[in-house]
């Protein structure tokens, strides 16, 4: 794409003591828009029509990143910006990645622990509704259909190492 005419426009700005700004040619902007629309179509198509399982997410994310890059570079003028602004953006992205990956890393480590508990204590949802009730007054309990008296329990249930059975110690109650 040609940049010749915007250089002229740019120079015109300079005469008036204008801040150092870059004027993006219209043809470039329209071209980017068309590309973005095509990529949007592509992302819908791959997700709906092609089945690569886990890879669908990867493909969708690659396309989204490509679209994002186009927006940042051209619509947001990053190509012509000061280095600091790019650093600000990249730092933000790095820290988001750091935050997500470390939290996810830890979460995956202890997920089994949670699944074991859920397998052994399947009645946790009513429990939640009752705990709402504790905070949000009885009318909420009525509204959500929680029923305190319905709580079955064997509080002295023996500790089973495997916790395979559902009638374990954690019966619903409001704690």
């Amino acid at each position: 794409m040609s940049h010749s005419n915007e250089h002229a426009e740019h120079a015109a700005g300079h005469d008036h003591g204008e801040a150092h700004q870059h004027v993006v040619p219209l043809s470039l902007l329209s071209g980017i828009l068309v590309l973005l629309l095509i990529l949007t179509g592509l992302t819908v198509f791959t997700a709906r029509e092609l089945h690569f399982g886990e890879w669908n997410l990867v493909i969708a994310m690659i396309i989204a990143c490509a679209k994002g890059t186009l927006v940042v570079l051209y619509f947001m003028h990053m190509r012509w910006e000061k280095m600091f602004n790019a650093i600000a953006l990249i730092t933000a992205l790095i820290f988001v990645t750091l935050f997500i990956s470390v939290s996810a890393l830890d979460s995956f480590q202890y997920e089994d622990n949670i699944n074991n508990y859920r397998a052994a204590n399947p009645t946790r949802v009513p429990q939640a509704i009752i705990s709402d009730a504790e905070v949000r007054a009885p009318e909420l309990a009525a509204e959500t259909g929680a029923d305190h008296e319905a709580a079955p329990s064997t509080p002295a249930a023996p500790a089973k190492e495997s916790h395979e059975s559902g009638d374990g110690a954690a019966a619903p109650h409001a704690g």
Binding site: I130, E134, H148, A151, P152, S153, T154, P155, A169, A170, A171, P172, H173, A174, G175
Partner: peptide
């Protein structure tokens, strides 16, 4: 509120 206790009717 007093917490709800995990008791069955017999208890």
């Amino acid at each position: 509120l007093m917490p709800l206790l995990p008791l069955n009717p017999q208890q």
